[in-house]
Design a protein around this nucleic acid. Structure first.
Lengths: 296, 296
DNA sequence: TATCATATAAAACAAATGTTGCATTCTTTC
DNA sequence: GAAAGAATGCAACATTTGTTTTATATGATA
């Protein structure tokens, strides 16, 4: 990534002139350089979601004789990098002293990675699985996350809307946050996300939900979180970070895993739902397929 | 190479019991491990001075099903070395058909952890540092993230509001998303977050900001993202996950690091601001200090 | 030396790879 | 709205791949 890579640069510079399929292939190659050298072209094409011929066409488009040139180039890059990696690592340690920012960044990122990795402990995995089961059975899933946890709640809700109509995001202006629960009942589940310091309103709503007979699943940060007492099941995530602020990355990771597990319950249905969402958004022209040109 | 390599050890330990030809093949493999993954078996055999069949025989001799097992092992080793402890994460699908929940969860989480860990590469750290500098200098920071990226944008904005009044979150109902930019100018910076598929509106607004003279910093997912062409500086994050959906955890981690770096520019000021925010929220009774009791 | 078992080379084989040409679909342009 | 052009999917193609089979060579044992 550091050293000059002429082919990579060529791909990037010609990217704008490529057709959609070529772009998809090119993008995958740029983002998975080592895979190019390690798997066959057909498999690469499959992983990139394009036809095998597209890879050949991409090679020709780049002015190469064929796909083998692309592979050869990436293989060479790997051979070249064999001891380059260690060298780079050393070079870090040197320049680290006068780069306070880099040092802090590294510590924060390594901390986050470690915290997420720690979620793979068997106890966590079990809770994730039961939570997913519970959510899958529910008629409706109400999602609640206020203040800092809004991001997690919203992301969960957003992803789930791609799958269907099952979730209701408890949010709104003018103190209407809780209104969504009006028609909630015992067949439903509340997914409540809250970390220290715990927003009072979240706890009140969770308590209300409990009283209305809803199942309550919590994503929170401690065994002694007030949510644990309210919820049927609590998934714990660390929020500590090497900076002033709490981190929500592990909580977000958990919510993404829950989405993944739910989608995995019925893969074909999930796939169909995603395709439908795709078509809908496509017809609305929501996403850019080419370089953007401002509407005037 | 640093870590234990069971296959390599097996080859060494069985070396004495091999015939001359098998030894020659085994020796070449041990001494050129990366070649095994990068060239075909026939070419490897040629380079080793051995018949192709000898390679197959060696694989069987080692108790494997065939030569492909040897290659797969060495390919994995390369992936492992390149990606740090990403290793297992990126190897794709095949038989996750009816994967147990725990297994899928673990793979997703390990993948996320690996992707965040990969952000500690020097190139990323440098970009993070410059982005933080640029943001620190700006008079105002406009934060833009639509659809799936809303969570990241909002989280950045929320954390920054704890520090002061510097950020403006570009969001709103009734198509008022861009209104915040009305008074934006050359002294300001836009922090734009967008991943594939790129929301058209995000690109248009980023373009508009650029035309208005704002600096543009992007958090996006690829060197060929349309945002790269618009932004002065792009921080790249992977979004691939072991499930149907893209992940935003790395993007969120990046935004948290940026917040941390910004706060770190003036630690005492940051501390003071946080305390003020604390007092304010305390006086509003925003957070629970004890087990919640519903208001009646 | 004759005989046997093993090791190696050579060739045959099915499966896969990368490539190419053709038919179809989607855009663009008049 | 029709026609030209580009982009794309599909299937056939010749190669190449890893494996297996067969034949030859080697070396030990009696």
């Amino acid at each position: 990534m550091l050293q000059a890579d002429p082919l990579r640069e060529r791909i990037v510079s010609l990217f704008e002139g490529m057709s959609p399929q070529l772009r998809q292939a090119a993008r995958y190659i740029i983002e998975h350089p080592q895979e190019v050298a390690l798997v066959s072209m057909r498999e690469l094409a499959r992983n990139a979601g394009v036809q095998p011929s597209t890879m050949t066409r991409l090679a020709k488009f780049l002015g190469l004789a064929g796909y083998d040139d692309i592979r050869a180039h990436h293989a060479e890059a790997i051979r070249f990098r064999v001891d380059g990696f260690a060298a780079r690592a050393m070079q870090n340690d040197d320049s680290e002293q006068d780069m306070a920012a880099a040092q802090l960044s590294r510590r924060m990122l390594q901390g986050l990675a470690a915290q997420i990795a720690r979620l793979t402990e068997p106890a966590s995995l079990e809770r994730l699985a039961s939570a997913a089961d519970r959510l899958a059975q529910a008629r409706r899933i109400y999602v609640l996350g206020l203040r800092s946890c809004h991001s997690v709640a919203w992301h969960f809700h957003y992803v789930m809307t791609l799958l269907g109509e099952k979730t209701v995001h408890l949010d709104g202006p003018a103190d209407t946050v809780g209104d969504g629960l009006i028609r909630a009942g015992a067949e439903d589940v509340l997914l409540a996300i809250s970390i220290n310091p715990y927003a009072l309103h979240s706890l009140e709503l969770a308590q209300l939900a409990r009283e209305k007979g809803l199942g309550v699943i919590a994503i929170t940060d401690s065994e002694v979180s007030p949510l644990v007492g309210i919820a049927d099941l609590a998934i714990l995530c660390s929020t500590e970070s090497q900076s002033f602020f709490h981190t929500l990355a592990p909580a977000l990771a958990i919510s993404e895993v829950l989405c993944g597990l739910l989608a995995n319950k019925d893969r074909t249905a999930a796939l169909a739902a995603l395709q439908r969402a795709d078509r809908h958004l496509l017809s609305l022209n929501t996403y850019a397929t080419a370089i953007p040109r401002r509407r005037i």
